[in-house]
Amino acid sequence: MHIHKYEKWWLTFGISSLVLFLFIVGFSAFHYGSHPPTGKVYIDPERVDEIVPFNNPGVHKVEGKEWDYEVVLVASAFYYNPPEIEVPLGSTVKFIATTKDVVHGFQIVGTNINMILEPGYVSEYVTTVDKSGEFLILCNEYCGIGHSTMTSMLKVVE
């Protein structure tokens, strides 16, 4: 099959760009651990309140781990528990979240923290909070009539 010279140039340029994008995101994911949020822990969605750590939602200081704080969060229609999160600037925080009923979103506006919470699964994400201020937390997966009122607040304090 004959291909025009310029088309070869174009395909080379285009495919190289795609490879470059893949290399950048792949390298940061598999070398630096910047994976998208995930989770491999499974729980019974109807017994969330009884299961550790979700029997005690809130911000917990931890020692001897790669992160300084664990934020344990339970979502249900149409609110988050805890309703407000406060962590010190510069600390490394692990968000551990699940839902008791339908699928909810967990997005912290103005940050990369954006994950889906699915019944039966625990979603996790670790990050270092390096900007102070108040960040709105909202549900970004349609969950019912009160969806757009489902909010919380992340306060990063000095």
Binding site: H2, H4, K5, Y6, W9, W10, F13, G14, S17
Partner: peptide, 17 residues
Amino acid sequence: EKNPNLKGTLYSVGFVG
């Protein structure tokens, strides 16, 4: 003609890229 004049095309796709 194997390679007709496609300079404009080259610049156009270059812009897209």
